[in-house]
Amino acid sequence: MIKEWNLLRVIACLSIVFLHSTSQIGMATGFPETEYYQLIRTILCYATPTFVVLSEIILANRYPYKLPEKFWTKRLKWIFAPYISFAIIDALVSYKLSPTVDIKQMIFNNIFLGAFEGYFVLIIFQFYVLHYFVTKYRISINVLIPVSILSMIFHFEILNGDIAFVQENMGLFKIPFTAWFGYFTIAYVIGKHYKKASALLYKHKWLTLAGVTVSLLGVFVFFKAGYTSVGSRRIDLLPLTIAISAAVIAWGQLMKNFKIINIISNYSFGIYLLHWQIQRYFGNDIAQYFEGTFTRVMALFIFSLAASMLIIKIVSMLPFGSYIIGNIKRKPASKLKTLKTAA
């Protein structure tokens, strides 16, 4: 695996764990009466789209012309099976915390409607289908980019409108690919031409920091204008996600290949699925044990990250472990080999 990809995955993973730590502590003790706490949480929402973007970058880099045999089999085993597992686990944890929960209905909603934190898997699978059609039918990406961005804008306009059905089923409307289409097309271009794109970003690495700064300013302007919802369904997160991804790809090429980065990267999928359940279960206890919002958030962040990695390691030793927490025993590929695939 290319080292800057691992770095980007780790940064996104840790951002998600930290974001959810702020959520759980806020729900346990009350959110601080400062808008900047919410602003920081809003910025951290770039992390889920980044996972989706990186997924397509890797896919377009490795399979720029067609998907290989057994592609779907592997994804069903090591991505969709864990999704199903945690859709059930999420319902069980919810039932444990609140026995009045209709567990059968919740399992159904989790699996088919993505009504839990693993919903991004449904988006990634839609990207797999999009990738299949784009490569099979040689669809012009130059046409697809503006279409995809316009579809996102239209989708978010509907979300921010006053249609009763949309407002009552807001969670469902985060799943269709049209809400994420722009991420797909931009990631496809980066991945398919990764050798040139990474070299260009490295050459202009200081400009990537300017891009992050400008996109952060854009989120700030939207936030001050009253667009204060904390979630990934924000159009201003598109430039922020792409800017952060570009900056990490550029600067990550300077980074040494640290073992801890590779380990967290391999565990990232499992961490994403598992940490939320740990935080739900232990968040109140940690909030009561520590004082001060920052201390509580950091304590929950560190605890849930460490506990997730420990549980993932233990589960991975089971014969069926990869069907629960994903495949953490991926063999690393050399950067040269991967770049040749992209050329």
Score class of each variant (00 low, 15 high):
121 V>L: 05
288 Q>D: 12
18 F>M: 02
172 L>C: 03
311 I>S: 03
311 I>N: 01
215 S>K: 14
211 G>A: 07
132 Y>I: 08
299 A>C: 11
88 I>K: 11
271 I>T: 03
156 F>V: 00
38 Q>A: 06
50 T>L: 15
41 R>M: 08
96 K>L: 11
198 S>T: 06
22 T>A: 10
83 Y>R: 00
34 T>A: 12
119 Y>K: 08
197 A>E: 13
34 T>R: 13
112 F>M: 02
61 N>Q: 15
27 M>D: 11
63 Y>G: 04
15 S>P: 08
273 L>V: 05
287 A>D: 04
191 G>S: 08
61 N>R: 14
175 I>F: 06
95 Y>A: 10
135 T>F: 08
271 I>F: 08
106 M>E: 12
103 I>W: 02
154 F>D: 02
117 E>G: 15
310 L>D: 10
29 T>A: 14
38 Q>F: 15
140 S>K: 05
51 F>G: 03
232 S>G: 11
205 K>N: 03
162 D>H: 05
196 K>Q: 15
62 R>G: 13
292 G>R: 14
1 M>L: 12
303 F>G: 15
193 H>K: 15
270 G>I: 06
148 S>C: 03
106 M>F: 04
266 N>P: 10
257 N>A: 10
130 L>F: 14
291 E>M: 07
243 A>E: 02
59 L>P: 10
168 E>P: 08
171 G>N: 02
134 V>D: 08
185 T>E: 02
173 F>K: 02
328 I>N: 01
43 I>P: 09
213 T>P: 14
259 K>R: 15
89 I>M: 15
328 I>F: 01
201 L>F: 14
49 P>Y: 03
143 V>M: 09
142 N>S: 07
185 T>P: 00
224 K>Q: 13
248 V>D: 02
126 Q>P: 02
234 R>H: 04
226 G>K: 00
